[in-house]
Design a binder for these strands. Structure first.
Length: 802
RNA sequence: GCGGAUGUGGCGGAAUGGCAGACGCAGCAGACUCAAAAUCUGCCGGUGGUGACAUCGUGCGGGUUCAAGUCCCGCCAUCCGCACCA
């Protein structure tokens, strides 16, 4: 058969579509399998080869599962709210809605051209009102359960995008969207109380199949630490200063305290602070720095001593000085620390610079040169003296602190609550109403969705308000509670809101009564396998687990965790080994490849190019190698003429079935394809093969190259009615007994070095094997005494000689 | 600094402790062709040797083992994530 991808790819895409070949059936008796990929943001640039790689793993697994008799749900949709569309709208004076719909069309077309086996009956888009109705509904549930709160605090702000960002959206001090420096501003912001779920988010990781790298990254991001809160009385004042520490047992070594420049205690006691001007100057200086700068200047400690304000070390009763310094952050712990210079390098550096006392309380190290952070016997510490175990001394001190009533045990997280409102247009309107009489009220459920109104000007206001604030007809409303005049919240939800629950909507995308039917949820959840990018681990993955855990807690879903298994793909780099980018001119457009080489070649290549979770550079030459492979596959119909199966070939076919079956399961797609290439080499050498062998071969290949194999399947007379697809045919079985060679060539070693090889029957006795081996290396054994003979059947023969 | 990963030919990469380099790419040689492309066949880690063969070889240094890319100890390098986190 000649390989004409231009003809066969549209032919089979149409046939699959016309026959609903990939339709997922609710409540089917077959075992269910829910495979998920991260739905794309429909950008103007169209699909990236990265999308193809990210989707191909679940695509291959889905196709294999269908052949193995599963009822497969493999859906696709669009994460269609977001800033790029809005920015583009501003630039080109168009409407984000129109741009988005056009891009969705374009993306759908591209995805179909690659032949992905999505169930297109279930397509969703987060910007459609029948979808965001339920995003708003879930938000209201969160609100009802006190997981939404408003607070005026220091938040991350992107001056370029003019929006407040969550901590997750400003990792590394850079805006997630435009990569410009984020600044810290005090703003009145809506938060989701994700920290209430910190322990559940941690604990849930024990019950899911995620790679360690992903689990570890989430654990680090959540950043749980256990320690103690301790109150230090301010000398001559009624107030105490509360600190957080993980080493309360070093209390005897505290020689000063440091508070963050933004700490409220400063303003309260500004009359007592004699050098208030210096304090204000220092604060101004700090406020100028971005979060990034502040954490980068880690070497040189700066600070100002508070003149006239002192604290009392509660355990020693000694008066100790107070400082402000920007190495203490307002956002972690209490924004104040007890400094133990002898055993904390930061405190040590600070103490050296400002001439503070350094009292050693743990034996070890050399306090003259640096802080000692290791373990050791407690000294200079009253009742703790002699303790050698850190755990015991902390325990004992905690007891004392609680007895004295100056503190208690506590837990801290690095993760912060989720800053949730965005001062932008193209997102879900937050369904809240501000009533002067009743306070904040949610939009009644029957009024959802709260529709995003049309706007002429998408430019965000300079006053830090969303474009919606300019629409009087939207802003002014009546309070659902008292009927009085009220105003709507005009900010919208962040990019991540819609994607925090989309996998649930796929289960029942057209439901108008609920976000999804409970019975259907019970049938399909959890997602069996979810593949996506490493960059979403501390964003989308964390957020969606949080929402799902919440929905579980209120009885809306039946599984505590949304995803049973999560994997990730490695990036496809440009041919130059650099990350693909327009400015470098190394971007590969998947549609160009489909047009020039066909979708099957593209699909096979992205799965063959290397280890799935590692980055690998694009190579046009290697791509051509895959095109050659498929051409050779097509030509196999010409040699499928043998009547009887060659027994050697039979073993090879069974071995390949086993290997491909197992390798796809463990996501070793590259070696699965390599095994098929090896088999085709064997087929070619044999000159003629049976039709049965060819059928097994094309079945194994069909998840990777579905169009070509579908055409061959038809050519081989297996699809006479036009709808008996290979895509739905039974996956080949192998016979374990037939995966073993009757005779195998085995290496023969002398003192661990290979000196020959010998063909040995699989059922040969040890004596027979050794006898044959002795002959094979007779030259090396001559004049030597054999000390030991090792025979590992099927593996190796080794003689230890003297 | 902490956490995770990786290090193997010219390149992408294979190897449940058992003949390192499967498979593919590139390269070389040959066939076909007036020629080129395509295709097919063969070779293809380094060094020495016409050759069978010898010898070295999986980031570096040690160790365990009949046998180490793989296990253990100590380094080095690169990538990713977190980071003055108290």
């Amino acid at each position: 058969m000649k390989y004409n991808f231009k003809k066969i790819e549209p032919k089979w895409q149409k046939a699959w579509n016309d026959n609903d070949a990939f339709k997922a059936v609710d409540f089917s008796d077959k075992p269910k399998w829910y495979g998920l990929v991260e739905f794309p943001y429909p950008s103007g640039a169209g699909m990236h080869v990265g999308h193809i790689k990210a989707y191909s793993s679940i695509e291959v697994l889905s196709r294999k599962r269908r052949m193995q008799g599963y009822n497969v749900l493999f859906p696709i949709g669009f994460d269609s709210f977001g800033l790029p569309a809005e920015n583009y709208a501003i630039k080109t004076n168009t409407h984000p809605h129109d741009i988005t719909e056009k891009n969705i069309e374009h993306f759908s077309d591209q995805l179909r051209k690659v032949g992905f086996s999505f169930d297109w009956n279930r397509v969703i888009a987060t910007s459609h009102k029948d979808y965001y109705k339920w995003t708003q509904w879930i938000f209201e549930k969160l609100y009802e359960h006190d997981l939404v709160f408003r607070s005026k605090t220091l938040v991350n702000y992107c001056p370029h995008c003019k929006v407040v960002l969550s901590n997750e959206d400003s990792q590394g001090g850079k805006c997630d969207i435009c990569h410009s420096d984020v600044v810290q501003l005090s703003k009145d912001v809506w938060f989701l109380r994700i920290t209430d779920y910190a322990d559940k988010l941690l604990g849930g990781l024990d019950n899911v199949d995620y790679p360690d790298s992903i689990k570890q990254q989430e654990v680090t991001w959540i950043g749980k630490s256990t320690g103690a809160f301790v109150n230090f009385k301010l000398d001559g004042c009624d107030d105490s200063l509360e600190i957080y520490t993980t080493r309360c047992d070093t209390l005897y070594g505290v020689t000063f305290m440091v508070v963050a420049p933004e700490h409220p205690i400063l303003d309260k006691y500004k009359d007592q602070i004699k050098n208030w001007d210096a304090v204000v100057d220092y604060r101004t200086e700090c406020a100028k720095k971005t979060e990034f700068e502040r954490t980068q200047i880690a070497k040189d400690k700066t600070g100002v001593k508070l003149d006239g304000l002192y604290a009392i070390n509660p355990i020693t009763g000694k008066q100790i000085p107070l400082f402000i310094a920007d190495y203490v952050m307002m956002g972690y712990g209490t924004g104040a620390i007890m400094a133990v210079p002898a055993h904390d390098q930061r405190d040590y550096d600070f103490a050296k610079k400002f001439g503070m006392d350094i009292i050693q309380v743990i034996k070890g190290g050399d306090i003259e040169t640096e802080a000692y952070t290791g373990d050791g016997e407690m000294i200079n510490s009253g009742f703790l003296n002699g303790f050698t175990n850190k755990k015991d001394s902390i325990e004992r001190m905690l007891e004392e602190i609680e007895k004295m009533g100056i503190g208690h045990k506590g837990v801290q997280y690095k993760m912060k609550d989720w800053a949730f409102n965005r001062q932008r247009y193209w997102g879900e309107p937050i369904p809240l109403i501000h009533c002067p009489e009743c306070g904040t009220v949610t939009v009644p459920e029957e009024q959802l969705p709260l529709e995003l109104p049309d706007v002429d000007n998408f430019e965000p206001g300079t006053d830090g308000q969303s474009p919606l604030a300019k629409i009087d007809s939207f802003v002014n409303c009546t309070c659902p509670k008292c009927g009085g005049a009220a105003k709507r919240e005009t900010d919208t939800m962040p990019q991540w809101a819609g994607s925090s629950w989309y996998f649930l909507r796929f289960i029942d995308p057209h439901n108008t009564e609920a976000f999804a039917d409970k019975e259907k949820l019970k049938y399909w959840m959890p997602v069996d396998h979810y593949n996506g990018g490493m960059e979403h681990v501390t964003r989308h993955l964390l957020y969606s687990r949080f929402w799902h855990q919440f929905l579980y807690d209120i009885g809306e879903v039946n599984t505590p965790e949304p995803y049973a298994k999560r994997t990730y793909q490695g990036m496809i780099l440009g041919a130059d080994g650099e990350k693909m980018s327009k400015s470098k001119g190394n971007v590969i457009d998947p549609v160009d490849i489909v047009e020039e080489y066909g979708a099957d070649t593209l699909r096979t290549y992205v799965m063959f190019m290397g280890d799935y979770s590692s980055a690998a550079p694009w190579s046009d030459e290697s791509l051509k190698g895959c095109a050659r492979f498929l051409e050779r596959v097509a030509a196999l119909t010409d040699i499928a003429t043998a009547d009887k199966e060659d027994s050697k070939l039979e073993v090879k076919v069974h071995k390949t079935i086993k290997k491909v079956t197992d390798d796809i399961e463990s996501m070793k797609f590259n070696t699965a394809i390599a095994a098929l290439m090896t088999l085709i080499n064997d087929f070619t050498k044999a000159g003629a093969i049976t039709k049965e062998d060819l059928i097994s071969f094309i079945k194994l290949l069909s998840p990777f190259a579905p169009h070509l194999t579908e055409e061959m399947w038809e050519e081989l007379g297996q699809n006479t009615d036009g709808k008996t697809f290979i895509t739905l045919a039974a996956w080949p079985e192998y016979d374990e007994a037939k995966t073993v060679d009757a005779v195998k060539e085995i290496g023969v070693q002398v003192n661990g070095k290979v000196r020959g090889s010998v063909e040995i029957a699989t059922d040969a006795t040890k004596e027979e094997a050794l006898a044959a081996a002795r002959e094979a290396v007779a030259k090396q054994l001559e004049g030597k005494t054999i000390v030991k003979e090792i025979y590992v059947p099927g593996k190796i023969l080794n003689f230890v000689v003297k």
